[in-house]
């Protein structure tokens, strides 16, 4: 049964590949194989855990359409095994390039090696993998999470400049083991380490979700006698925590200063209402950059190993002005 299904799958894939060649082939051949024929790209997304991710997905899909690239999209629903399955099916379908945003950092060597053996270049987007063998992927396009953590820390240091009393910080971490959680934590930690007044009194995972962010913050509010600052690894957890802070009878943004990362629209709305103090942007709109990169990789041009997306930091006074321009 599974064999038959596999055969059917391969047959379909080949048919798709043939038509793809047929449609774009005419001009492509004459141009001397400049690589303009329609590329097929397999893209495995983490999931749809947040507005940020949805914007990221949309950006990739739109950019692919614009660039005339056939995109095979697969949603991993935040599970590594789904993503590995998707990548294997991309290999079977003989796509030109595989792009994916790894759910977790480790455990990719085997499947990436399969892609390498099939001579399909791999582009990582948004999140990195933790692998000793650098030849397993061509390049990594995405945000620098350590940098984001540092930016969050920098804002905090500046905010409490000249003050000496201790600052108690609680941290809502992302999904345990994920690159943004690890890096945002370490980047932030590196910056505030230099000053003894900053103290992270509690740090737990909120799984990047609103419900968990709220639940964990409620527990923090009860177990920690004094909280000055909340550092949330993403906006959704911050938004959940804001509800918890309000229910505790405190004013978010004033009694407890809130630092968040990502920059989704809901967070800007909250920031415009003075509930979040600062948002470190993590730009999901990397579709166009990705398509450019994929074309280059396919042509065999050398690309940098690490390409960063353009990102900023937004504070409360800029929120209202920036709100209408937020796309996600």
């Amino acid at each position: 049964m599974s064999k038959r299904a596999a055969v059917a799958l391969v047959a379909t894939a080949m048919a798709v590949a043939l038509t793809a060649c047929g449609s774009g082939g005419g001009s492509g051949d004459k141009a001397g194989g400049s690589g303009d024929k329609a590329l097929t790209v397999g893209f495995s997304q983490v999931g749809a855990e947040s507005g940020w991710r949805t914007a990221n997905t949309k950006s990739v899909q739109d950019a692919a359409k614009k660039a005339g690239i056939t995109l095979k999209f697969s949603d991993a629903q935040q599970k590594q095994e789904n993503q590995i399955k998707a990548i294997r099916s991309f290999i079977q379908q003989k796509v030109d390039v595989i792009a994916f945003s790894p759910v977790v950092e480790s455990g990719w060597d085997t499947v990436l090696k399969e892609a390498k053996d099939a001579k399909i270049p791999v582009v990582l987007t948004d999140r990195a993998v933790d692998s000793k063998d650098e030849s397993l992927y061509a390049t990594f396009l995405g945000s620098d999470f350590v940098e984001e953590g540092k930016k969050a820390g920098d804002w905090l240091v500046k905010e409490y400049q000249g003050k000496t009393e201790p600052v108690n910080i609680v941290e809502l971490q992302g999904t345990t083991g994920s690159a943004p959680a690890n890096d945002r934590k370490s980047g932030f930690g590196d910056v505030i380490k230099g000053d003894a007044k900053f103290k992270v009194v509690a740090s737990q995972t909120g799984d990047f979700t609103r419900a968990k962010g709220k639940e964990v913050m409620q527990a923090f509010l009860k177990s920690q006698p004094k909280i000055d600052v909340l550092y949330a690894h993403n906006d959704d957890m911050a938004l959940g925590a804001i509800q918890a802070i309000e229910e505790a009878g405190k004013t978010p943004g004033k009694d407890i200063k809130i630092i968040s990362v990502d920059g989704v629209k809901d967070a800007f709305t909250a920031m415009a209402a003075s509930k979040i103090n600062v948002v470190v942007e993590c730009n999901p709109l990397l579709g166009d950059q990705l398509m450019e990169l994929i074309k280059k990789v396919k042509k065999g041009e050398t690309v940098e190993r690490r390409i960063k997306t353009v990102e900023g930091v937004f504070t409360m006074d800029q929120a209202a002005a920036a709100l209408p321009t937020r796309q996600y």
Binding site: T176, G177, A202, S203, Q204, T205, A219, F220, K222, S223
Partner: peptide
């Protein structure tokens, strides 16, 4: 049990 994990500060890696 969940609340205990949050309040006594068990690191997420060992939760």
């Amino acid at each position: 049990l969940s609340t205990t994990v949050y309040t006594i500060g068990i690191p997420p890696e060992t939760t």
